[in-house]
Nucleic acid binder design. Sequence first.
DNA 1: GTCTATAGCCGGATAGAC
DNA 2: GTCTATCCGGCTATAGAC
Lengths: 194, 194
Amino acid sequence: MTAVGTRDLIVEKADALFYEGGFEATSFADIAAAVGISRGNFYHHFKTKDAILDAVISRRQQRTSEMLDNWQAKGAAPRDRILSFIRLLIANRIKIMAFGCPVGTLCSELAKLDHAAQHRAAEILGLFRSWLTGQFQALGIIRQAEAHAMHLLVWSQGVAVIAATFRDEAFIRREVAGIEEWLDELLVAPAVEN
Amino acid sequence: MTAVGTRDLIVEKADALFYEGGFEATSFADIAAAVGISRGNFYHHFKTKDAILDAVISRRQQRTSEMLDNWQAKGAAPRDRILSFIRLLIANRIKIMAFGCPVGTLCSELAKLDHAAQHRAAEILGLFRSWLTGQFQALGIIRQAEAHAMHLLVWSQGVAVIAATFRDEAFIRREVAGIEEWLDELLVAPAVEN
DNA sequence: GTCTATAGCCGGATAGAC
DNA sequence: GTCTATCCGGCTATAGAC
């Protein structure tokens, strides 16, 4: 066993290739070449392509949880935590303009394939949904907390799709500014309305 | 030649299959089976798979243009025309919850495949973008017309992705109500601000 | 754990009879 | 214009040597 196990390396490379090329269009040969092992060796670690997808989704769930925990632990106010989420669109803008959102595009693809793993992929978005709902609740916005969380998911997914279609960075920055405005207007409104 | 030419039937079936299963995952055999012809006969009408995709995109451009012209010709006020666009999300909710938006998911897939046709697919969204921009201009909103049009595209694409992920019809109706509220708030604001 | 070799299938694409 | 038959290549997956 090396410092980073071959299995972990396979999952890491498969994750990137599924994001950049799509799950269906990525072959075992592509992943094996990226890892630098033979196709035969591949099957020592994963029996089927679906097993790799499963591991990739688990990895993404894991990393998403860690990211959310980090944002939580940094001890900032809920508003700043929500801004961390929003600014993912800026931080990842180059890849988003090329390939869209890794989670949104995977969910869309698996829905069309009617793939058994589509619900596990949806759980990744569910992690953001729950976490964002918690942030709004922490701000005293209770009744509408989940609706606001869903709206933030809608907005960011929409920006990702349009950004990948038109490849316009100024557009991303304009929409992100709009999201931040929307958030601040929410926070000055009487909490009883929310 | 029959009432509906075989070529047209191929494009129609391919359009539906690309939407419901994705471009990459749809094979010639799938389309031939849907049309009811042999694979060999297929090549009499289309030399390559990319040629079919090209025809499907042309068909979608054509039908989108016709739909926008119809909305325009109905003589309603620009606000009502914009509402026609927004309510596509309600009218097509069943298919959207299963397969997402036909245009958005195609653009996302072609971006990942780095396919030569990705710009032609983006033009379909461009038709909506231009038409919506025109509606805002007709309402006296000049400076921000295009930004508002883009924002409507963002919102509807975001709803489509999240609807396909969580399969929640109440969510779609809630977001559509939110879009309509946003629109009406825009229209009561002083035009000079926009 | 890693390799080579290969099976078996399905994809896009072609040739040629009718 | 439609068919059957077929080619070739890439795909997932397996077997077995090292």
